[in-house]
């Protein structure tokens, strides 16, 4: 069957745009469900993107980069938890602080590690892995199953998250913590520990999104798949200062849009990804200035929030520091 409409490349492009959003949105979900607002997703992604590149640069191995990226995400998650849970700082403000810390910190470290700001040296990244059989499905096969390992990881994480929330003790307690922490506390479970766990998981999931951004796919593969237009805002196997460009916030919007559920959040991330892919792959047919193309995801996010944000029901205790009497 011929893909005359170009659906395959469009889908592939959608997945690539949606993947970092999807990881971060799942990350936001674990944090929010524990009752901690995570504005810091942006910063967590950025720092992990950088840490991943440093790890990969130093070792020559993308897997080591993944490990260092995850470690950085965990660390930042623990910082956010320490400040907003243990020290009871305002969660939104401490999240904002982490974002600024990530921005300034990666700038500082670019100077310290690589000796100059801007863009890091190219590092080894995750090449696309073709899954035989599945990738042979007409039209969608190549798009869905000739992707980076990280994309497959995201495929697995969505049902896993659903399972964890619904079928494990941890999930039950996490949901309760985000709604009525007093109930968890009186049941003899530590609210603080649950929230640390939620935020730490959040940091690691956001880290996966960050690592995907900076080294999710080898550059050669990207070029082949997408062509030149894509490069201006695309995924390079290198770190560029402020390369997240608000994706952490868009992921938060996806989480809200998806009503704080894993499937909803991923659905919203895919929707955002599709819209961006449409603009990027089809936008060149229309003479729109590059700046307006770049604005598109942000405009879309605002529209999505303004249309559906008000109807969303957030975890009741989200944003409120928990204090025992």
């Amino acid at each position: 069957m011929d893909d005359v409409l170009g659906l395959g490349p469009l889908l592939a492009s959608t997945i690539r745009f949606a993947t970092p959003l999807g990881f971060a949105a799942l990350g936001g979900l674990f944090s929010e469900r524990s009752g901690v607002v995570n504005i810091a997703l942006e910063g967590m992604m950025l720092i992990s993107a950088f840490a991943g590149v440093v790890g990969s640069y130093a070792s020559g191995s993308a897997l080591v980069g993944l490990a260092t990226g995850l470690a950085a995400g965990l660390l930042i998650g623990l910082v956010h938890a320490a400040v907003s849970v243990s020290l009871q700082a305002d969660q939104i403000i401490s999240g904002t602080a982490i974002n600024l810390l990530a921005l300034g910190g990666t700038g500082f470290l670019m100077e310290t590690v690589f000796g100059s700001g801007g863009t890091s040296p190219r590092v080894s990244a995750f090449d696309p892995v073709r899954i035989p059989g599945l990738a042979d499905i007409p039209i969608i096969g190549e798009a869905l199953f000739n992707q980076s390992v990280l994309v497959y990881l995201l495929y697995l994480l969505v049902p896993l998250t659903v399972f964890v929330l619904r079928r494990t003790r941890f999930g039950l307690r996490l949901r309760a913590t985000g709604e009525v922490p007093e109930a968890v506390d009186t049941a003899g479970i530590s609210v603080v520990r649950m929230r640390y766990a939620g935020v730490a998981l959040s940091g690691m999931l956001a880290a996966l999104g960050g690592v995907y951004l900076s080294m999710g796919v080898a550059l050669s593969g990207m070029l082949a798949a997408l062509g030149g237009v894509y490069l201006s805002m695309s995924l390079l196997s290198a770190f560029t200062e402020n390369m997240t460009l608000g994706r952490g916030f868009i992921a938060l919007a996806a989480l809200i849009f998806g009503r704080w559920t894993p499937v909803g959040a991923i659905g919203a991330a895919l929707l955002f990804g599709l819209a961006q892919a449409l603009v990027v792959t089809r936008g060149s047919d229309v003479p729109i200035p590059q700046e307006f193309v770049a604005m598109f995801p942000y405009v879309l996010t605002i529209i999505a929030l303004a249309t559906f944000g008000g109807r969303a029901v957030a975890p009741a205790a989200s944003g409120k520091p928990y204090r025992k009497e």
Partner: peptide, 14 residues
């Protein structure tokens, strides 16, 4: 910038 962010991190930490 880092110092500024750290200040912000702690300034509401009750």
């Amino acid at each position: 910038d880092v110092l500024l962010a750290v200040v912000l991190l702690f300034v509401t930490a009750t």
